[in-house]
């Protein structure tokens, strides 16, 4: 089990209720499992902010893992460990 801090903004923050939340991630301790846990905890309101019902996939966005940047599309199996800080860099787009 890895306990990590998850930071989010805008509509995702609104669903999580706070800018930073702590989440326990079960094995396998991966980015994908973290999002599964967030869905278990926050249910449909979270899922619809992240999963695209039209593609059935997680939307593409960047994730800051400590000081490095990974992505929701390419790095879902990336390992996470106890104490990691994860920021969901989403939504993003133009003005």
């Amino acid at each position: 089990m890895a306990r990590v801090k998850v930071k989010s903004f805008s509509v995702i923050r609104d669903v999580l209720g706070s800018e930073v939340v702590e989440i326990d991630v079960r094995k396998p301790e991966t980015v994908g499992e973290l999002f599964e846990e967030l869905v278990r905890r926050y249910g449909q309101p979270f899922k619809e902010k992240i999963w695209d019902p039209n593609s059935g996939q997680m939307a593409p966005f960047l994730i800051k893992l400590n000081e490095s940047i990974i992505s929701s599309t390419l790095d879902i199996d990336h390992k996470i460990k106890n104490g990691d800080e994860i920021a969901i860099i989403f939504p993003i787009g133009g003005g």
Binding site: K7, F9, S10, V11, D14, E48, K49, I50, W51, D52, P53, N54, A59, L62, K64, I69, A87, I88, I89, F90, P91, I92, G93, G94, G95
Partner: peptide, 23 residues
Amino acid sequence: TTPAVQGLSGYGTPRNVAAMNEG
């Protein structure tokens, strides 16, 4: 229903200021 469009209604285009800074 598209995640990347949500947020524009509530926060307008500045919805991404904090996320962009974090990135």
